[in-house]
């Protein structure tokens, strides 16, 4: 079976600086993979390589077996992206925001269908017709999720999506991620939250200075154990 996400000797240099050392990583469909590491460890570089925003210096990033750098248009059709801060458009309502991003991707949905996606992403109905400028960060994340749902993306790349969320919002966010995973969607998530990584991820990777130091199964490790490993790795 083809891996949903695969890094084959994927590396990135900027002038003299090595942002990512040759990386080997396979993530099968339906898996949630959490990437831990300090700022500058290479997490965002990895995600940007899969998104096709930067070109690899060597190696390949593959999505569903397709080389991202060579077929960015094709791989992007399968991908959704949820950044740390999802501002979207404050003057537009939740429905209008979702409609806009769907139309860009070539989909048109009725208002009813759009609301169904927002509901599915966990956004309460009262908020649908309100301007996004008044949303909390958690609510805006949900619009981001709805964009991914409406696109029916098989791979969702997230860059520190839960930082700044309150505990309840984080819990809700995790529940949606699990549901997506159950439906066979693959999630690669960069995060700083060790406890969240153990509770949500199937596998966890720890990065440092552009190296992927460890990959552990979440089932085989406790939060405390992971924390210890994390500090040893980044030591």
């Amino acid at each position: 079976m083809t891996n949903a996400l695969e890094a084959a000797q994927l590396a990135k240099n900027y002038n003299n600086h090595i942002a990512l050392h040759p990386l080997e990583l396979q993530i099968p469909p339906g898996q949630i993979f959490c990437l831990l590491g300090q700022n500058g460890a290479g997490k965002t570089t990895t995600i940007n390589l899969f998104l096709g925003f930067i070109e690899p210096s060597s190696g390949q990033a593959l999505i569903n077996g397709v080389n991202v750098a060579k077929n960015t248009d094709i791989t992007r059709q399968a991908v959704a992206y949820i950044p740390e801060v999802v501002h979207l458009y404050g003057n537009l309502t939740g429905v209008e925001n979702l409609d806009f991003f769907n139309r860009l991707a070539g989909f048109r949905f009725s208002p009813k269908e759009l609301k169904a996606f927002l509901l599915k992403a966990g956004l309460q109905e009262e908020a649908h017709e309100k301007k996004l400028g008044g949303y909390s960060k958690g609510m805006r994340q949900k619009v981001g999720i709805a964009i991914a749902l409406a696109k029916n993306a098989s791979v969702i790349l997230m860059d520190e999506p839960t930082s700044g969320l309150d505990p309840k919002a984080t819990l809700e966010f995790n529940a949606i991620c699990r549901e997506l995973s159950d439906q066979g969607k693959t999630i690669l998530m960069a995060t700083h939250d060790i406890f969240n990584a153990t509770s949500l991820g199937h596998r966890i990777g720890i990065m440092r200075d552009g190296h992927l130091k460890h990959i552990v199964d979440a089932s085989g490790i406790t939060a405390e154990g992971l924390q210890q490993l994390y500090f040893e790795s980044i030591g």
């Binding site: 998104l51 925003f53 999802v86 991003f101 769907n102 860009l104």
Partner: peptide
Amino acid sequence: KILMIQGG
């Protein structure tokens, strides 16, 4: 970035 991912 989201615009670009969505086909912009």
